[in-house]
């Protein structure tokens, strides 16, 4: 009997931690999905650029001993800048209909960014500053880590800010017009290239938040994070449905929670295998994402 209680408490605790950390996956997923929605292309560099942005923030911390909030701010600006550069290198001048070229270019840029980070850090992990990491809220048998709660809150605020930009500003109107009908949008006076460029910057800012929040909750930044975060981000994007922001948010929480549950039940070695299985389940039964209707079968 005590075993069952213990087990249940631990599972729920895993889910709580997972959902809180999953908010960063949601941000990465939103970034992928935002750019896919605007250009109908995958920007493979996105997670790497987000983490590189976090490294830029970290540089301010290590070199100038900057306050933590400034580190986060620098990460946001840095990641937005990388996003714009990636846009110009991998998307702006590649013909719209050439999806493979843009994909390959962004895969190349992914490795390029990764190599720069490895070179600059000698491939060793670096400590990333956190806020409220000594706070712990007790909720009955459960504990809520202060740093994770902070990460969660910042992520939610960023999502709200993104919602505001998308649905309450001209940029958002232009972005949605371009994603729904590129040619008609242009002939309605919208500069499609500038709109896409700005979308990359906005996505990059979101990535900077995600990157620094990942750093803050893991406590370290390491080049080894790039691949798993890229993969988790893509899984979140697929589960949420390519182009669906609400889908990416829900999928981010889902992946975060399940990852932690698998970690508790099956251990760290098997954890990611089950997450990959989850991806296949969605690809087969809900290929257009969590909020789409069931796949029609022939």
């Amino acid at each position: 009997m005590d075993d069952i209680v213990f087990y249940t408490v631990e599972i729920i605790q895993s889910i709580i931690d997972g959902v809180l950390f999953g908010s960063t996956y949601a941000l990465i997923g939103i970034g992928f999905t935002l750019i896919f929605g605007a250009m109908h292309k995958l920007n493979m560099t996105y997670a790497a650029a987000s983490l590189a942005g976090a490294y830029i923030g970290l540089a301010f911390f290590t070199l100038f001993d900057a306050p933590v909030m400034l580190v986060f701010l620098a990460a946001i600006v840095g990641s937005a800048g990388i996003g714009l550069i990636v846009y110009y290198i991998c998307f702006r001048y590649i013909p719209v209909e050439d999806h493979l070229a843009a994909l390959m270019a962004s895969v190349g840029a992914l490795f390029f960014i990764d190599e720069i980070v490895i070179h600059a850090t000698n491939a060793s992990p670096l400590t990333f500053p956190a806020l409220f990491d000594d706070v712990m809220f007790e909720l009955g048998p459960f504990g809520i880590r202060g740093d994770l709660l902070f990460v969660f809150a910042v992520s939610l605020i960023s999502m709200a800010a993104l919602w505001y930009v998308l649905y309450r500003t001209r940029l958002g109107l232009a972005t949605r017009a371009v994603s729904q009908q590129g040619i008609a949008a242009q002939l309605c006076g919208i500069d499609i290239h500038r709109t896409n460029g700005t979308t990359f910057v906005v996505a990059g800012m979101l990535g900077g938040v995600a990157g620094s929040m990942i750093g803050a909750s893991v406590g370290i930044l390491s080049p080894l994070l790039t691949l798993p975060i890229t993969i988790k981000g893509l899984i979140v994007t697929v589960i949420g449905g390519l182009g669906s922001i609400p889908g990416a948010i829900v999928a981010g929480f889902l992946v975060g929670a399940l990852e932690n549950v698998f970690l508790f039940v099956r251990g760290v070695n098997e954890r990611d295998m089950y997450i990959m299985l989850l991806l296949f389940v969605f690809l087969v039964f809900r290929p257009h994402g969590i909020f789409s209707r069931r796949a029609e079968r022939d």
Binding site: R176, A177, Q180, Q181, Q186, L187, G189, I190
Partner: peptide, 23 residues
């Protein structure tokens, strides 16, 4: 560019309808 031409004073409709369907 097409968007500057709209500002210059040219607008059009399409043979195959191109509306912003989800708006």
């Amino acid at each position: 560019t097409p968007n500057r031409r709209l500002v210059a004073g040219v607008a059009r409709t399409f043979q195959n309808i191109r509306l912003f369907d989800d708006m």
